[in-house]
Amino acid sequence: MRYIEPHGHMVSRTTDDYQDMVTAGCAAVCEPAFWAGFDRSSVDGFHDYFCQLTDYEPKRAAKFGLPHFSWLCINPKESEDVTLATDVIGLIPKFLDRPNVLGIGEIGLNKNSRNEMKVLEAHVDLAARHDQLILVHTPHLEDKLKGTRLILDVLRGDKRIRPERCIIDHVEEHTIQLVLDAGFWAGMTLYPESKCSPARAVDMLDLYSHERIWMNSACDWGVSIPLAVPRTALEMKRRGWPADLIDKVIYRNPIQFLSQCPKFKLP
């Protein structure tokens, strides 16, 4: 088996996880910038985090022969402070040329507030000005439907944005159709307690689409499983999916999306 982990917060994981992922067939990992579980006190905290994502973490992954890519932004959970967010967004352009940076993400909304919307629009503008791919986080639980609608409005409202260059992540049964119908890519996040189980993910693949869709574990500091993607491949196999279709969803689909950034190359 070979697969791509297109959304994994590896700074939160141990080297054991790197070993397990590579052993299971992981061919590349992509790490969006996210919330640390606490609010960073200044723009300097983000500077250091961006250095970690673009310099230190790729070296750590390389020790296990795993190509590591990253996405940069200030995440929606820290976007209520528009002044801080503006400073952080100002910091991003100087990191965009780093060899492992694929685009802007994971941007989006958390509680669907006006300030979060402002910061989302600023990120979308940044991506458009620098011709970057976009990775979007949709809110959790009861906030997801509303947030997904608002995010789609923002992206569709900016005529410079091409939907095929944006992935809307953490879709579930009530949001997947909205995302795919609007021409965007959809990401399914496999979490043990919230978001999506392997069985539900395969149901959605059967019901909606095998195109413009990827799966990720999002493995972070919370309850999450770094091997969720290969375990879901096992679920597909148990349902009698042909090997080629499994390979398409867990390997070729993410490559198709990510290769829109010329920096995404596998050895």
């Binding site: 958390n110 509680k111 669907n112 507030s113 809110p139 639980l141 009861e142 439907l145 608002l150 009530h174």
Partner: peptide
């Protein structure tokens, strides 16, 4: 999922908490 979801469409004036309750 829809029955647990916020059906409104206007952004909140301010985010006062970070977490979600599930309903």
């Amino acid at each position: 999922l829809l029955s647990f979801s916020d059906p409104t469409t206007k952004p909140l004036a301010k985010a006062t908490v970070k977490g979600a309750t599930g309903a």
